[in-house]
Design a protein around this nucleic acid. Sequence first.
DNA 1: CTGAATTCCAACGCGACCGTTGGAATTGCG
DNA 2: CGCAATTCCAACGGTCGCGTTGGAATTCAG
Lengths: 200, 200
Amino acid sequence: MLVGMAWNTEETKRKLKEAAVAEFAAHGLGGTTMERIARRAGVNKERLYTYFGDKPRLFATVLADELNKVAAAVPLDHLDGPEAVAEYAGAVYAYHAEHPELTRLLLWEGLLDLPAVPDEASRTDYYRTKVAAFERAQQSKTISDTLPAADLAFLVLALAGWWYAVPQMARMMHADSSSTPASAKAALMQAATQLAAPSN
Amino acid sequence: MLVGMAWNTEETKRKLKEAAVAEFAAHGLGGTTMERIARRAGVNKERLYTYFGDKPRLFATVLADELNKVAAAVPLDHLDGPEAVAEYAGAVYAYHAEHPELTRLLLWEGLLDLPAVPDEASRTDYYRTKVAAFERAQQSKTISDTLPAADLAFLVLALAGWWYAVPQMARMMHADSSSTPASAKAALMQAATQLAAPSN
DNA sequence: CTGAATTCCAACGCGACCGTTGGAATTGCG
DNA sequence: CGCAATTCCAACGGTCGCGTTGGAATTCAG
């Protein structure tokens, strides 16, 4: 009965998912072709269908994978003070700088505006733990409570994500070319600090 | 020689552009079909090609049109104090709430990451006038100068735009359904105020 | 009315992509 | 070795959308 280990199946799946992330991030659900994913992975197209189902299902799979990766890479359990909020915002920005695929996948997904996203339950849990960390910090008076915790957390992510959402706008607003990834990160950390600083 | 006024050409062009905005905003450049645009406008597909060229050109045309509209609808020449920044952020949010097409077009464009966007020169001018208004307010010490003017302006727009960029994230983070468009607007205006408030 | 210019549109060629299928190659097992 | 199970893949049918084209309908000038 034993499932054969022949043809290193797991490795093939991994290569396909890696290629799918790159293609979907670059071209979106509609702009990506299964053919190109398979070619990039050096695998036949048919494997995609037997392993992952059709194109939307594959998209959902790779997005869920990437979300799990970022959840592991940028933890957030405890916040004590505005500086910790800035650190978190900076870490999110830095992660996206190294892995621009995730933001782009999220944006492509957002533009599809499906009635419900795949994996909604676990993703909601994930975001709620972030919000809960902000709530606890508010209750212990270490950060500002002028904004509801959910809004504050959401807006901090907005500061970090907007650069990747509309890069063309970022480029045009900083036309004097005085802007670098490093200065962008410094600016958003400063901004996050101001959002989280206890009102005086 | 006189060009005939027959078949009300201008009206046909207007209807085509209106339909194109709706379709492009909903499905993006790749997901939109010329056929559907023409059907929605009640006009034959071929008119699109003779009037506007191919699909990317049409996309650029309608995006430029929408940018001109928002520039006219949400002016910004003078800023005096954090409250004015909040007012501006709120106005931007409100405009996008009524015309969600523009943000979506910008996001689709951003995801294409073209080396240069159409109409780059005039759009750069447009953004630079916004930045200049922030700069003047900083020089007259009515708003905070802890952030470069370009970053501050950019991040204020981030606060207003993020809701539309990742609506699925907004929905999941506010899972308790305590969030409304009105509360979102209030939150972002509060946040904008805190970003712009002179440091103490 | 006749003819030229312009707007409109039905139909087409062509290429691209999705998802499938039939069968070949490889592996483990008896 | 022979057999069954599994992984792999080249090729295909069908559909869809882009951009074009040939000609019909409408308008205006003479």
